[in-house]
Structures are given as structure tokens and as C-alpha cells.
Write a protein that binds this DNA or RNA. Structure first.
Length: 300
DNA sequence: CTCAAGTCCTGTCAGC
DNA sequence: TGCTGACAGGACTTGA
């Protein structure tokens, strides 16, 4: 379930249930869910059992639960199809459940946190926390100036108040890559995936193949505004759900799929100009755009 | 056979 | 020569 709004819905759903809770036990049902934890299942379980969770934090599409002691966090990436589900402590296994945390919260009692993932691109890890180089909190929901080592190379996300807009604009204008590839580069700006890249480019009327260097400062700033706008709107509607692969911690779908203007609409009329939206192969996936109102400038 | 919300790795090439 | 970064393409996986 991937992009920033969907991961934020999960973080916000998890936070009240896990903050202050103790991890009593951990079931590793499929070791492939630990690809980000190279020390293996026994080490993973040993580092978690008996520890207390302090918060639920997020940067871009990475989620983490800082642990008492302040030096480590449980890191989660949902990949393409990962889910974090809050369940009764004795709930039956989810379809594709890979890991289960048995937690106990002072107010909510015993609960299960199930990590389920059909395609196994997602994974969990216990990771060291490092001091942030920019002296700002590690991410949304993090009050401390700490970030997991696996997240340190990820840029601050588009909705982070400490996101460096001037540096981003300068970096875009130095690149010769297609602007869509730049938006998907998590080391420059994080949280954007294929859906919201297409939506933001459509809103800003920029062709996805336009080179970064061909964009004016004004155009990049406008694009950034559209990125923030679409992420916030999607978040307000609970994220984008096409099928059961994206759900919140209670298993419910989001509503933003009804509001998409370009993504998934190849062959349909553009909601703005009536031209026919196109779907085109791009970076092993697809781009959706309107060839009429997203004109190619500085193309490749 | 094609397609899908992501990340990471590898090889190439340029520049210091 | 070796290091670093930019860049493009592909690997990984399951199921519809």
C-alpha cells in the first residue's frame, strides 16, 4: 500500500494503539518479511520482546516505532502490498500474514499487530537510530531528532515542514532526467509514487518526460504545490484503494480513487480539456497524462 | 502472456 | 587509479 497518504493513514491508525504498549511476543511466520533485518528471525524477536514502543513515526513511505532505550526502532516498509492490521490478541491469521506482534497497552489491553504482505516487497527490521544531520525531528510523529539508519538516505517528504524547497528546486534544475523520474527519486523528495506523480504532473500541466533542467524555477515551485495539494487531499480521503491491497489498520479502504484525474484513466477524456488521456510505458510501469494539456517541452 | 501503490542493485560514463 | 555521483534499466514476488 504504498505512497505517503496511505502510509500516513496507517501510522495515524497505529499510533494510539502502540504508543506506550509493551511487545510481549513476536511470531515470525515468513522470514522473507525480514529482508531488511539481515541478522535473522531470532535476533529480530530477541530485540523486540519485552520492549516498550514510544511513538509511531513516518518519513515518506517509511514507518518506524521508536523503542524505549532510545537507540533502536522497529522499521517497516510496506512495499507494494504490505498491510499493518490491528486485531484482537487471539484473532485468526490474516491472508499473507508474515509477522505478528503481541502487544499490551496500559489502556487498551492486549492486541495483535499483523504485518500481512501478498508480494513480499515489504519488510520489517529492528534498526539503530541515528541523530538527524539537520537537527530537526526524524519525521512526522517523531518528537526526537533521530532517524533509523535505513531511512537516513531518504529525503524529507513533501509534507515535512522542514523540507528544503530551495535545495529541491535547484536539484531538479540540475538534472537531465525526466521530471517524473525525479519525483520518484526518494533521495530528493520522498513519499511520491506512481499514482501521485502522475496526478501532480497532470495538475501542473507538465509532461512526465520533460527534463528537470528544462523547467523554470516557477514551474518546479508550482509542481511542488500540486504535489502537496494532491497528497493532502488523498490523505483527507483516507488514501487511494483500488482493491484490498491497500487498507487502513482496521482493514478499511480509502476513497481517493474516485478523485483521480489521470492515473488509471488511459483512453478516457481529460477532465480538464476533453482530450484523450494516454497511458505509456515508463520505468517498468506506466505513465498517465494528457498529451493536449501536458505539452512536451525539452523532451528526450 | 500482461499488469500492479516500491526499493535496491548493477554497469556505464564523466569528472575530480 | 580510485572514488563519487548521475543515470538507466532490471531484479525481486504473487496473483488477477
Amino acid at each position: 500500500m504504498p505512497e505517503l497518504p496511505e502510509v500516513e493513514v496507517v501510522r495515524a491508525g497505529l499510533a494510539p494503539a502502540v504508543t506506550g504498549a509493551r511487545i510481549n511476543a513476536v511470531d515470525v511466520l515468513d522470514e522473507r518479511a525480514l529482508t531488511r533485518h539481515p541478522l535473522g528471525a531470532a535476533d529480530f524477536v530477541g530485540r523486540l520482546e519485552g520492549r516498550e514502543v514510544r511513538a509511531a513515526a513516518r518519513r515518506g513511505k517509511f514507518l518506524w516505532l521508536p523503542l524505549a532505550g532510545g537507540d533502536e526502532a522497529l522499521v517497516a516498509h510496506l512495499g507494494m502490498s504490505g498491510q499493518m492490521l490491528l486485531r484482537e490478541s487471539d484473532a485468526v491469521r490474516e491472508r499473507h500474514e508474515r509477522i505478528r506482534l503481541h502487544i499490551e497497552h496500559p489502556q487498551h489491553g492486549r492486541l495483535a499487530v499483523a504485518f500481512a504482505d501478498q508480494r513480499t516487497f515489504g519488510s520489517l527490521a529492528v534498526d539503530a537510530l541515528l541523530t538527524t544531520p539537520d537537527a530537526a525531528p526524524g519525521g512526522f510523529g517523531a518528537d526526537l531528532l533521530l532517524v533509523p539508519s535505513q531511512v537516513a538516505h531518504i529525503a524529507r517528504d513533501a509534507l515535512d515542514p522542514t523540507f528544503d524547497e530551495r535545495a529541491f528546486i535547484a536539484a531538479v534544475r540540475r538534472r537531465s532526467s525526466a521530471i517524473k523520474r525525479i519525483l520518484l527519486d526518494q533521495t530528493l523528495i520522498s513519499g511520491i509514487g506512481n499514482i501521485y506523480a502522475d496526478e501532480a504532473l497532470w495538475a501542473a500541466r507538465i509532461h512526465p518526460e520533460t527534463h528537470g533542467a528544462a523547467l523554470s524555477v516557477h514551474a518546479v515551485r508550482r509542481l511542488l504545490g500540486e504535489v502537496r495539494h494532491v497528497l493532502e487531499k488523498a490523505l483527507a480521503e483516507g488514501g487511494t484503494s483500488f482493491d484490498a491491497q491497500y487498507v487502513n489498520v482496521n482493514g478499511q479502504a480509502g476513497y481517493f480513487a474516485h478523485s483521480l484525474n489521470a492515473y488509471g484513466r488511459g483512453g478516457e477524456p481529460c477532465p480538464r480539456c476533453g482530450g484523450e488521456l494516454r497511458r505509456e510505458a515508463f520505468m517498468n510501469r506506466s505513465s498517465h497524462y494528457c498529451p493536449r494539456c501536458q505539452r512536451r517541452r525539452g523532451a528526450r
